[in-house]
Amino acid sequence: MIRLIDISEENWLEVIFLSTMKGTTTICEEFVASNALSLVQAQYEKTWTTKAIEYEGKIIGFTMYGFAKKQGYHELCRIMIDHKYQGNGYGTEAMELVITEMKKIENCKKIYLSTDPENIRGKHLYEKLGFVNTGEFVDEEELYVLSINE
């Protein structure tokens, strides 16, 4: 079972060394910023929530979500599954958990996310979960939105 857990003194190092790519962790990976960059960003931009994604006691991924002040909307800013665990449905399950958590945020009527136009797997997942391409771009990434039905 997938769970979202707090990032703590005991697990933060494990979280920052997760990577979507085989090899070394970098500040900007193929389709997502590094977990280390995200954790630093969340320390200075207090509107973000960061969580580790855990499966059977192992940390397998990371997510960051909250309110994007600059854009003025609620956003699933980052989500990643370590390359060793991809292709098992964990990303879908983790996204569903994040969406459930975001629905609890006061005044969150829509969830936005953006992705690289070449992230075909990601876009397929987002659309499967009900996100719709807005036709807009943010920082050269395609903007998607999920309207929340209450």
Rank of each mutant, 00 (worst) to 15 (best):
E54D: 07
F131T: 06
L143T: 07
G61Y: 04
I60M: 06
V40P: 01
V40W: 12
D116S: 11
Y90G: 10
T134V: 06
T20N: 10
E14R: 14
C108T: 12
D116E: 07
S19Y: 03
F131R: 09
K109P: 01
E29T: 02
L125R: 06
M102Q: 01
E93W: 00
V15T: 03
N119Q: 05
I79P: 02
K110H: 07
C108Y: 12
I27R: 13
I60D: 03
S114N: 13
F31L: 00
E141Y: 07
K104L: 13
K104W: 02
T49M: 04
Y73L: 07
E127P: 10
F67H: 03
V132D: 08
S38C: 15
L146M: 09
T92N: 09
M95V: 11
N119W: 10
G135V: 11
F31Q: 01
A36R: 14
Y126C: 02
T115Q: 04
L13T: 09
K123E: 15
C28D: 13
C108D: 13
E56G: 04
L113E: 02
P117R: 08
I120C: 00
Y90D: 08
E101M: 03
M64W: 00
E127N: 12
K103S: 08
F131S: 10
F31P: 00
G91D: 03
D6Y: 11
E118A: 13
